[in-house]
Structure formats: structure tokens, C-alpha cells
């Protein structure tokens, strides 16, 4: 989780990733940030994030992203 927050802060510093649950809904992470984020998460956590996972529910909070990463690691 700590590494995930570091990545998020590196990509888009202007948010409190510990608490924010509306990263997509409030346009804190836009589509360009999502492109960068997905590339970074795949490299860092050795996963493949399929397009079907690119939905607001999976990116609205750091916790949601962490859950998605864990799930994809288990599926792999």
C-alpha cells in the first residue's frame, strides 16, 4: 500500500490518497494520469491490468486500487 501511494503521489501529487475516495469522480486522476498509473502499476506489481478493469470503482481510492492489484496478482 505504501508503494502504491508513493506511485500515486509521483504521478499526481495534489491529493490525499490516504483518505480520498473520489479520485475519478472528482477528476483528480484524469485519463492521462490513468495511462501513466496503469503502466507504472503493471511494472511495479508484475500484473496485467486489462481494459475491463479500467472503471471508476477500481480507481476512485488507493484502497480500491490496492484491492484490484491483489486480486489480479491472485488470478495470475
Amino acid at each position: 500500500m505504501e508503494r502504491l501511494i508513493e506511485i500515486l503521489e509521483d504521478i499526481q501529487p495534489a491529493a490525499d490518497y490516504e483518505t480520498c475516495e473520489t479520485l475519478i469522480d472528482d477528476h483528480i486522476l484524469d485519463s492521462m494520469a490513468i495511462i501513466a498509473l496503469v503502466a507504472e502499476l503493471e511494472d511495479e506489481f508484475d500484473i496485467t491490468i486489462p481494459t475491463v478493469e479500467i472503471i471508476p470503482d477500481n480507481f476512485n481510492s488507493a484502497k480500491a486500487m490496492y484491492d484490484m492489484i491483489t486480486r489480479l496478482q491472485e488470478e495470475d
Binding site: S31, I34, I35, A36, V38, A39, E40, E42, D43, I49, P50, T51, I54
Partner: peptide, 20 residues
Amino acid sequence: FKDYIFYPLSMSKPLKKLTS
């Protein structure tokens, strides 16, 4: 367009590598 063109293209392997 976002769901069926933008993300599939930008998340394709060559473009992901390009982004990295």
C-alpha cells in the same frame, strides 16, 4: 469512445511500453 477506443488503444502493449 473512451471505453472502446481510448483506453484499449492507450492500454495496448506497444503504447504502454511507450508510456513507460
